[in-house]
Design a protein around this nucleic acid. Sequence first.
DNA 1: TCGATAATTCGACATATATCGAACTATATG
DNA 2: CATATAGTTCGATATATGTCGAATTATCGA
Lengths: 111, 111
Amino acid sequence: MSNYRDDQIKHFADVFKALSNPNRLRMFLHLVTCCVPGTVGSFDAEAGVSACVGDLGRDLEIVPSTVSHHIKELHRAGLIRMERRGQKIECWVDPVILRGLARFFQEPLAK
Amino acid sequence: MSNYRDDQIKHFADVFKALSNPNRLRMFLHLVTCCVPGTVGSFDAEAGVSACVGDLGRDLEIVPSTVSHHIKELHRAGLIRMERRGQKIECWVDPVILRGLARFFQEPLAK
DNA sequence: TCGATAATTCGACATATATCGAACTATATG
DNA sequence: CATATAGTTCGATATATGTCGAATTATCGA
């Protein structure tokens, strides 16, 4: 019988697992720093609001298949959003998720 | 050639790995919620400032050897502190580490 | 429709992790 | 010193993960 708190714990454990790989954390931070807070859903590659899979692989020197794998993990954990724009797939971090994580360490799940 | 940012990333990835296992996260939260902020280093089992390895295993139904393994991981990642008190070993979370993690999601590592 | 670019899927491989029980070490107490 | 309690270490085992290259799918432009 699983309760709310238990589900919450599993959720956060999953989020931390997604951030536990150095390359994946690098990708996440790359997206965070190129993602202007409050611009959820508005795309502007020129302004650096989002980055596509290829950008990430190029900047971090990881082959496409591995980037794709990591992106999928980050997305599965709910850490990033993605949307196809022509040939490319843009990725960005929802500021809301960042706030949720900051709060987790400020007011951890009650017992 | 490793730089500061790279070391930082590896450090945080390691911290998140320690929190990526549901049982370990449960143990960490257990310690966080029984650890009164600002009481670093002051022990008082009655007041619930810290918990020993046995307490954690009993509450979460994990065998001692597994608890020991997880505690070691949390400690290795710098998430908890421990000190022997007679037969028992008390564990607690340093509030400073919590603040550091909250800040990580508020002002992520600059590019 | 053909070729180029972008990304995913798949299969393989080596490595890491979670968990347990048994054996061991450390401490306290009669 | 003998015994009980607390914790660690070790070895085994099943499962998960990270990474790559090759093959596949999707989209755009000439």
